[in-house]
Amino acid sequence: MLRVEDLTAGYGRSRVLHGVSLEVPGEAVTAVLGHNGAGKSTLLRAALGLIGAGSGRVWFEDEDVTRLPAHQRVRRGMAYVPQGQQSFPQLTALENLRLVADGRRDGRAALEEALDLFPALRSLGARRAGLLSGGQRQQLAIARALITRPRLLLLDEPTEGIQPSVVAEIQRTVIELGERGLSVLLVEQHVGFALRAARRYCVLEAGRITSSGIGEPGAEERVRQALRV
């Protein structure tokens, strides 16, 4: 599905990723674990093309997308939910979704499906996204990403900074999306949840992948040791 080969990337002169190679298989959740500043978000941003690759390649469904701008990668079937419940604050919740549904032949149906996933959003449609709670904005962000009917979802810390009542719902949704056959690359600090959701995991430290494995019983202990938490 997604193959990252020897990727380096960073901001300005400071390099964050130092030759990361990673393969995300189809129809499963893959988790990227690591401390703050390890380069997890940078990995997702570089995979989507929001920051350029210094060297290395990014393949999506056997196509080299390394030089494609982000919006074209989205059109080819990637979707991205950034960290921090981001939205278009002055647009209403519904406009946030319609924006992505516009111009798609299946837009209306996709919008309905996304709203079915988070029924709470239906009654909030007319409210400005900037006025929603963090949890609601995160649901909106996931819904917005799913409207493009992606085959790969890049999900950056979906439960970070969200009220506990919504965390469980979002975790359930992520697990459900994986079970439905969507490929997910999940960046997560919450090791327990990540390993419950993911079939495979890798640990990123200081811009390098230091270990990887399968999400099986006992994996949590190994990851915690690797992360020394």
Partner: peptide, 13 residues
Amino acid sequence: QHRELAEASGIAT
């Protein structure tokens, strides 16, 4: 309002 998020949402900014 949010150029990068627009690009990441598939909009040709």
